[in-house]
């Protein structure tokens, strides 16, 4: 799938800047083309959030609390990755993630930016290198209010409210995770 970029001016400026940074050929393609590289829903962090929904415990009354109700989302984090070609052998990788949230967690929207370049050490080989950086996309778990009757009401980690751990201690175990901030990809291909 291939489509034209809708914002050529800004992309051209970005491309020139990137070329300067990475030492790529200053010759910019006359026509910038942007390709959809990947589109998918879910991520390791999304899976992680879903995993938090496993388990549960009984309240004092014996009624069971399932974690699942807190860690499910109506929309799963969607990632769109695009490549804007700026020379014959270089391009900008960019994209975004929509994020997702459930009752007790949130994955922020994210922005991905990087480049892809390739060279030909020999006529039948290609060496490719890409580096991308992701901004945002952090997974943050929210706390619960647990009522322990005469023993008080505390802000707690929802999953650990019935454990032997002191209520305030459980907050240390709230999940606070970041997606991979940088991704380096190196590929060497020989055709024979």
């Amino acid at each position: 799938m291939r489509e034209k970029s809708g914002s050529r001016v800004s992309l051209r400026a970005m491309a020139l800047l990137l070329c300067a940074l990475i030492g790529a050929s200053p010759v910019v393609a006359q026509e910038l083309t942007t390709s959809l590289v990947d589109i998918h829903q879910g991520s390791p962090l999304s899976d992680r959030a879903r995993g938090l929904g496993n388990g549960g415990y009984e309240l004092q009354s014996g009624n069971r609390v399932s974690f699942n109700q807190w860690y499910r989302a109506s929309w799963v984090d969607m990632h769109v990755d695009l490549l804007t070609q700026i020379t014959e052998d270089a391009g900008i990788l960019w994209g975004f993630g929509t994020g997702e949230q459930g009752e007790k967690y949130r994955i922020e929207p994210s922005l991905k930016l990087g480049f892809l370049t390739q060279m030909h050490p020999s006529p039948n080989s290609t060496l490719s290198l890409s580096l991308t950086t992701t901004i945002g996309g952090k997974l943050t778990e929210k706390s619960c209010q647990a009522d322990y009757g005469d023993l008080g009401t505390y802000s707690v980690n929802c999953r650990l409210a019935a454990s032997q751990m002191a209520p305030e201690e459980t907050l240390k175990y709230l999940v606070n995770a970041k997606p991979e901030s940088q991704h380096l990809w190196l590929n060497y291909r020989v055709t024979f």
């Binding site: 390791p44 962090l45 992680r48 388990g55 549960g56 415990y57 009984e58 999953r159 650990l160 019935a162 454990s163 032997q164 751990m165 459980t170 240390k172 175990y173 709230l174 999940v175 606070n176 995770a177 970041k178 997606p179 991979e180 940088q182 991704h183 380096l184």
Partner: peptide, 24 residues
């Protein structure tokens, strides 16, 4: 009941440069 067990931070890194959690 279910009991918590604190995993080490290293164990919470998925894959090479992937995801690392900032707390056990």
């Amino acid at each position: 009941q279910e009991a918590p067990d604190a995993d080490e931070m290293a164990a919470l890194c998925h894959g090479g440069l992937s995801i690392c959690v900032s707390a056990t």
